[in-house]
Computed example of a mutant assay.
Amino acid sequence: MVSQLVNTIRNVVGITGNVIALFLFLSPVPTFIRIWKKGSVEQFSPVPYLATLVNCIVWVIYGLPMVHPNSVLVITINAAGTAIEVVFLTLFLIFCHDKKKRLKVLLIIMVELIFMAALATLILTVLHTTQRRSIIVGIIAILFNVMMYAAPLSVMKLVITTKSVEYMPFFLSLASFANGVAWTTYAFLPFDPFIAVPNGVGTIFSLAQLLLYATYYKSTKRIIAARKEAKMEMHLSLSELAVANGDVDPKKTAGATP
């Protein structure tokens, strides 16, 4: 009776984790809408999406019945995450105007795919028990999961340097925190160290991002406002210069009717 109750709670938490993780994977949508409108990736980093892609693939392998039985909820969300990250990285490559950066991202994607294919092949052919397969893939999954959560550290450094959270999306940090809490809880029903360790670490990393966001939110608003004011002043200066040179009718510039 107790084990059935625990299993039911585990499934509920797992489904909740799937929903939260889906929001996590979709949280960069506003960022990519901005990239689409501006036609440029600006200073946004591809690292979080590259890390999430390889993380999702390795967890799909971990959740396979021949690797770690009874892990359907692990497969479903990570398969969805893989598809979403492929879309994001495709958009990043389209709107990245730096050829060297674009080539670097492509090479990293190729290396990730080759590594995952080799891992799956070796695990399924060399190891012959689910226990051994779970241990090997689980250890690798921990490494990549921690990498996914730690990927924004480079962005956190930029935040501290510039005192601006403009390039650290809030919803991505919030979703990462909620996702870490949900999957850490799931990992204790029953205890699965391969899920508990990386998501526990991820919860701490995500909390650090949220604290940074709270710290630099006001200064970000001031920086953005100052930038807009500087642009307006530059526009007015150019207009005045054009009038002085006789390139623009001063009456039209002032909005007067002839």
Rank of each mutant, 00 (worst) to 15 (best):
L73P: 06
C96Y: 00
S237V: 03
A182D: 09
S206A: 12
Y62K: 10
T203H: 02
F32R: 00
P46I: 04
I77C: 15
L107Y: 04
Q209P: 05
L106C: 09
R227E: 14
N78P: 11
L93N: 06
L174P: 08
L153C: 12
D98H: 00
A187E: 03
I160L: 12
T184C: 09
L113V: 15
I140Y: 12
A242R: 02
L64H: 02
L212E: 06
T220E: 01
M116A: 15
M156D: 07
F88K: 01
S176C: 11
A182I: 07
K100S: 15
T121M: 10
M66F: 13
I123C: 01
K218I: 10
F170A: 04
M66P: 07
P193N: 09
T161V: 09
K218H: 10
V126T: 08
R34E: 08
I20C: 09
P46A: 08
W36Q: 11
T31S: 07
T129F: 04
M232T: 15
R102Q: 02
N7W: 14
V47W: 08
T185K: 06
F92D: 00
S45N: 05
R102P: 00
K163N: 02
I109C: 08
F205Y: 05
F191W: 10
A151V: 08
D249G: 03
L103D: 13
M66W: 14
F23E: 10
V67Q: 03
L119S: 05
I136P: 03
G138R: 03
T215L: 15
N18H: 05
I61T: 09
V6K: 12
P193G: 05
S239K: 04
V159K: 00
R34S: 08
G17Y: 06
V12Y: 11
T8D: 12
P46G: 07
L103Q: 11
T76I: 15
T121H: 08
K37F: 03
E85F: 06
A117E: 03
P198M: 06
T8H: 11
I33P: 04
F25R: 11
V13L: 11
T82W: 12
A51W: 11
P30I: 06
I142V: 11
I33S: 03
F177T: 05
T90D: 02
T184S: 14
N78M: 13
L5Y: 10
S173W: 07
K228Q: 14
H235M: 15
L24W: 15
K100Q: 13
T76C: 13
V126P: 07
V155M: 11
A230Q: 14
V19R: 05
F205H: 03
L143H: 04
Y167M: 01
V181S: 10
A83V: 14
Y213M: 06
I94G: 00
G200Y: 01
T125E: 04
N179W: 09
S40K: 02
L211M: 12
Y167E: 00
L211C: 06
I77K: 12
I224M: 02
N70Y: 14
L174M: 10
R34T: 09
H235Y: 08
V29K: 02
L210D: 05
S71T: 13
A141G: 07
W36D: 03
G255Y: 05
H97R: 09
L127G: 01
T162D: 04
I142E: 01
P48V: 00
C96M: 01
T220D: 00
V87M: 15
G202Y: 01
D192E: 15
S154Q: 12
G14P: 12
T82V: 14
L73I: 05
L119H: 08
N199Y: 09
L113D: 06
Q4F: 08
